[in-house]
Design a protein around this nucleic acid. Sequence first.
DNA 1: AGGCTGTACTG
DNA 2: CAGTAC
DNA 3: GCCT
DNA 4: TCATG
DNA 5: CATGA
Length: 427
Amino acid sequence: MAPKRTKNKAPSADPQGMFAGMVVFLIENSVQSRRLQIWKQKLEQMGAKIETHLSKKVSHVFAMSSDALFHHVDKDQLARFKGVGTPTSSLPYSPPDLNKDITEIFGKLINIYRALGDDRRSFSYYKAIAVVEKLPFKIESADQVKNLPGIGKSLQDHIQEIVTTGKLSKLEHFETDEKVRTISLFGEVWGIGPATALKFYEKGHRALDDLKSDNSLTNVQKLGLKYFDDIKTRIPRNEVQEMESLLQKVAEDIVSGVVVVCGGSYRRGKASCGDLDIIITHPDGKSHKGFLQKYVKRLKEMKLLREDLIFSTHSEEGTDQGVDTYFGLCTYPGRELRHRIDFKVYPRDIYAFGLIAWTGNDVLNRRLRLLAESKGYRLDDTGLFPATHGSGSKRGARGTTSLKLETEKEVFDFLGFPWLETYERNL
DNA sequence: AGGCTGTACTG
DNA sequence: CAGTAC
DNA sequence: GCCT
DNA sequence: TCATG
DNA sequence: CATGA
């Protein structure tokens, strides 16, 4: 390339650069801040202008992943860029998506084993999917996966059968088995797990209607049954957003300064959510006490909260440092469709741990807790504690206080876990 | 052989 | 304590 | 089911 | 921390 | 992304 007077010394903007005239908005997801800087300087060298906000002037948007892109730019904003001659087409750093035949089958097995109560085995398939998904090629023989982590003899055989016959007889068998199908169905009801599902099956029940007339149903199971379809209905992201701000207003109205955040899959940037996870605290470290009861009462009055599933209040005026919890059903203002909603109220000093735990996802939580354990700590949603191992005080010992980490970042750093933005936590 | 995240409520 | 849920 |  | 290949 | 200044 004929470099016309390579000015390596002063990386000044080159008005003739190939990116001349571009106004760029960089989505910093902090994946590799190192790499980000490189992009910045490269772009500026090539004549582009970096914009710190997504203003009207922006002509191009860069993101490390589609997830990151979606988190920062909503549909309307995105529409402006569609079709325009941008490098957007080269952006979707989307994983190959190859071997979908295998991961789809494993996905079904995950649900089946979970329904049967075999969580461990279920998780093995979960881990296997993560491994297979990342392969840059289409598997054609079991030999290609025999040395991959999380894939042992049994899963090799599964893969072999899938790539040669296109299906898995084991799954076919499960899917036609009335017992498995029935237990899986019953297990989808909130409050019914593997054991209860099996019990109902052995009683002769085969359909949800059979359950409605069973007198051994608990209260929450009755609710789970009554609103079975409602609860399964996913909530569009924009509706969650509206409910979050509504919940924030109502909370502020009760105690000024209270912090209300919607966690869960919403905070992880998903386009739709199965439920609402609301995490609450107060900066002054004490005003959170007794808040939840007033809050729930108020939300019921305005018909946002409709039915209760679990309501435990641990922090009523006392030296108690507990976490108040509410699980229930709610409706979007003006509608009747029930959604699952959870509230967790944390004292300010352990808020970060609650935030991490209730933002998830579950895989990340497991990894963080395992990592903590490997470093001699015990991590949960209420804090990070020096391991009370074998000898010494029992677990119930409430004298042990959590290490003081104020933010999620501090917790990640302390554990030596690479920082993940909320929308990067869909592991 | 035994772990696989760790905690809390309901009944 | 078993079962369930997060 | 996989891993140690 | 920045620049290079 | 590893490497070097």
